[in-house]
Design a protein around this nucleic acid. Structure first.
Lengths: 356, 356
DNA sequence: GCCGCGTACTGTATCGATACAGAAACTGGA
DNA sequence: TCCAGTTTCTGTATCGATACAGTACGCGGC
């Protein structure tokens, strides 16, 4: 009897139920949904009408996906819990870009956030997707192993670059070097860096040279290297440049970073931040202390999010949306070079000027 | 031979492949992944080791989901394309709240955005999920039909209320009435309303009484009714209150709305907006015109997003996170009353004052 | 030595659909 | 009239796993 799809008490309505009810084959009912050209319009209408009456919910997604071999969705792997990710405008830009590509393609977007404690990455193992986009993961994160095990198409955005996987990002070292050079060229000598997370351990405070050397977030590592190069060329001793580290990437963290840096004696005359959001926090810290920008302190951001223009913040422009579009194109249609470095650009606004 | 899982040329590695390779049953391999207590630790290690060597990606999610009858994800249905949704801080708050609940539960979050043109809602039909959360949908949207057809648990957030489905929201009528009463109590008589979308047609401009009467977004409809009630009680003729409509819910739209309203002659002395984001735009329009707030014009927002406090905006506080938590609780563990009206509260700040 | 019982593993049926090959009915042209 | 060529529908095999019942075996107690 199991083959007989007549709905038992509480039973589910399946293709078979419908087929039996109408006296047609299961295949024909399936075709009514998936290949309308395979049957007459009249029969198709009859089937859809019966489906409506019997309460057939349409082809079961898991069954269809199993048989077809496609899931119709891509997985977006994010460090940071989702709540924080949504609070970071650069990340939001990126999400917008991904969505702009998946939506018209009729492909779902499955969010796979990874908390710091989550070492098993089970969500990844069980995700019904056709490919993964990894967004800003540290070196050696277990999620990377889990993703590779799935043997599906993968693309990495921003970090890590080391994995030998298709990659989209910018030349972080050159970008941050140019941000640093900008303030050095203006004549600043007491500069400081407000770094984004160096390692995935939630540390919020000074990042001494040992910690810098052990950086597991490649983008942060590269940017620090860029700053160091700029200092070297300008004859500024990198060892004397204070570096503070912030996580997560949000206003409050930047505020704390700003307080730490601006509380130093002697006070830095320029602060180069690794994100606009951190820079906004630094600007607020400066306001708290009654410091004027750029007269008393110059501030450089990174990302050029929408609010940066409004805040008149000098920053490095990069496009999260463009990165997302490139990554999505690769995952959806396998198109494009495997790895891309997108352009970045220094945008000089009013938050930087020569030291007093 | 098909039953034989030995990997053919280019063939996939399945449970059967592993089982054959090790000389154990398929069930045992399955248990190694899903029910570790069913076999000895030693055998389990041997199986996992072989899996590693043969490149077995773990249980196929679609197959597992089909057999188990659960998808391990919930679907979040949003109107507006995702790009806009992420740009609206109230929506982002809501997303944060949903994520905060699904993440620890190990449940995926599948985003299902619906563009205005998408009348088939195919993404919903094919979504591999165990339940749906509908966020701010207009009456009669085809997505609602598609969701109901799936016969899965559903909860509606904010709109529409008419569907007879479990619901989470606030008393929109009372909330907007109190916002309107606030400015009326301050003595304003020439007031105006900056409404959120009235219908799902992308209209951006005046919403005359005919359009108000045909509102398909229930929350907007209720809020307008609340404003009307407040006016009635205060003896202000509702017909003389200009109402402008904005979509999408973003700063630019609010700016346009503000320009329209503040360009009227006589100029309104108070503007009540249906979101903080719109109110921010109105504030900018006032700045453009050299108007002082609240001396020349009072502005009220709605939502109390984080930026409202910073902007000193009088607003109605509601918690997107709380709504999300309630909705998620219902979908994940079927707990809680089916329908909830959460509290709202008028938060008086510096953007409102008596008319000059 | 036999029974009872728990642990470790196996075998078969099944989840709900789609692919593909084939049968049946219909079409049109020589 | 007959046959090739379509069009329309059917039947069977299969996607890759899990549920559940059953077998085999080890061990303590009477």
């Amino acid at each position: 009897m199991p083959k007989d799809g007549e709905r038992g008490a509480g039973g589910r309505v399946t293709l078979q139920t419908l087929a039996d009810h109408l006296g047609v084959s299961r295949t024909t009912v399936s075709n009514a949904y998936s290949r309308p050209d395979q049957l007459t319009a009249k029969l198709r209408r009859r089937i859809l009408k019966a489906a409506e009456e019997l309460g057939y919910p349409g082809p079961h997604p898991a069954a269809r996906s199993l048989r077809r071999g496609r899931a119709g969705a891509i997985g977006l792997v994010l460090t940071e819990t989702l709540p924080y990710a949504f609070g970071d405008p650069y990340a939001v830009n990126f999400l917008q870009g991904i969505a702009a590509a998946t939506e018209p393609a009729g492909v779902g977007l499955l969010l796979l956030p990874l908390s710091r404690e989550d070492t098993t990455a089970e969500a990844i193992t069980g995700a019904a997707v056709d490919g993964f986009c990894l967004f800003s993961l540290p070196d050696g994160h277990p999620a990377l192993t889990a993703v590779l095990r799935r043997r599906l198409p993968v693309i990495v955005v921003d970090e890590p670059r080391s994995a030998g996987l298709p990659y989209v990002g910018i030349d972080d070292r050159a970008a941050f070097r140019s941000a640093t050079e900008h303030v050095l060229d203006l004549g600043h000598r007491r500069i400081a860096v407000a770094a984004y997370r160096v390692r995935f351990d939630g540390h919020d405070g000074w990042a001494d040279s040992a910690r810098q050397a052990g950086a597991t977030f490649p983008a942060t590592r590269e940017r620090l290297a860029g700053a160091r190069e700029a200092c070297g060329r300008a004859g500024v001793d990198w060892g004397s440049v204070p570096v503070t580290e912030s996580a997560p990437n949000e206003h409050e963290s930047g505020l704390r970073a700003g307080r730490r840096l601006l509380g130093l004696d002697p006070r830095p005359t320029a602060i180069v931040a690794m994100s606009d959001v951190l820079a906004f926090g630094v600007l607020e810290a400066a306001r708290e202390l009654g410091l004027r920008v750029p007269e008393n302190v110059s501030v450089v951001g990174f990302d050029d999010v929408a609010a940066a223009a409004a805040a008149d913040l000098t920053t490095i422009r990069q496009s999260g949306k463009e990165k997302a579009a490139t990554a999505a194109r690769y995952l959806l249609i396998g198109e494009g070079p495997e790895s891309v470095l997108l352009p970045h650009e220094l945008v000089v606004r009013g938050s930087t000027g020569p030291p007093a």
